[in-house]
Simulated scan of single mutants.
Amino acid sequence: MSDGPASIEIPDVVGMTGREAHVVCRGLGLFLGYYNMDQQLPQGKVIAYQEPPPGTRVAPATAVRIWTALDPLPGDRDHGSQ
């Protein structure tokens, strides 16, 4: 294992609430970021998608971006207009 402590594996947070994912990510030394930066982290909503995907190895303090089921997914911008 040459990755050493400078590499963290992204956890699978899909299906968790924002609150649960925040605790998991903080415990690993990662940040949790909501795709819509104008709104607060959706603490009670279930996460439907994340980026980077689970299993990706990243540097400490990397942000894991999340989307809930009500948010337009990346690449789905045409379908997410209100």
Rank of each mutant, 00 (worst) to 15 (best):
D71I: 03
P74V: 09
T62K: 07
V46M: 02
L32K: 01
D12A: 11
R65D: 03
P53V: 10
V13T: 06
L30G: 05
S81K: 15
Q40G: 12
E20M: 03
G15P: 06
G15I: 04
Y35L: 06
G27V: 14
M37I: 15
P52Q: 12
A21W: 00
D12G: 02
D78C: 09
E9V: 14
A59G: 06
E20W: 00
G15N: 01
I10N: 04
P54W: 07
D12R: 11
E51D: 12
S7V: 02
S2P: 12
V64D: 01
R77L: 15
H22L: 06
M37Y: 14
Q50N: 08
L30D: 03
K45Y: 04
H22D: 09
A59T: 07
V13R: 00
A21Q: 03
I66W: 01
D78T: 01
R19S: 10
G33N: 07
R65V: 09
P54S: 15
W67I: 10
W67H: 05
G33Q: 07
D3H: 15
Q43V: 08
G29R: 07
A61Q: 03
D71V: 06
A63I: 05
A48C: 11
G18S: 05
P42D: 00
F31C: 02
C25K: 00
M16Y: 03
G4S: 13
S7D: 08
V23S: 04
M1S: 14
D71R: 02
R77P: 01
L70Q: 13
S81P: 03
Q39H: 10
Q40E: 12
I66A: 05
Q40I: 03
R77T: 12
A59D: 13
S2A: 14
I66H: 02
I47M: 06
D12I: 05
G55W: 12
V46H: 02
P42A: 01
G55Q: 12
V46T: 06
N36I: 04
D71K: 04
D76N: 15
V14R: 15
R65Q: 09
G27I: 14
L28V: 02
D3V: 15
Y49H: 14
V23E: 10
G4Y: 13
Y34G: 02
S7C: 12
C25Q: 06
E51N: 13
Q40W: 06
G15M: 01
